[in-house]
Amino acid sequence: MTRSTIELVPTVTDRRIARHAAAAIVLTVAEAVIPLPLPGVKPGLANIVTLVVLARWGWREAVWVALLRVLAGSLLLGQFLAPGFFLSLSGALASLIVLGLAMHLPKRWFGPVSHSILAAFAHIGAQLVVARVWLVPHDGVFYLVPIFSAAAVIFGLVNGLIAGRLLHELQALEAEERRSG
């Protein structure tokens, strides 16, 4: 009997996705330590990574990074297949769809801040729908809509600014490398 070995050779893209996903997972776990005033209101710092990947490497890689983060983050926090997992999965899917559309907005006018806020609204929108249909089948959940949308604006703005700053510095770094190398 011949022994067959399957060798998986990770490509450069695979390694890059893994690296970004790892950064996003670290942020997810770090964020879980922050006490939250309300279930569902959180900064979503891991989305900064998604935004940076989206701007630099495109939508497909952003999808990989975001979904890997949801999966691995929930495993680490013991949330896998719990209600919280489906809430973050639905939020991540909705915001990825919106990001896929928003990235085609004219770059001169709309930057990472717009992407971030729009994605944040998609996130809470999908989560509210899942919560209303499945977890809390009562219109009472909509009582929290104003709080969630305020959080979406504030955290969307902050995350977008951080992502914009990171992109700016990464660009400067690359320009410097090109000049010296």
Partner: peptide, 14 residues
């Protein structure tokens, strides 16, 4: 870092 459209999105969000 805030482009004109970004202000618009912030205002729409508020």
């Amino acid at each position: 870092l805030l482009r004109p459209g970004d202000w618009l999105v912030v205002a729409a969000g508020l």
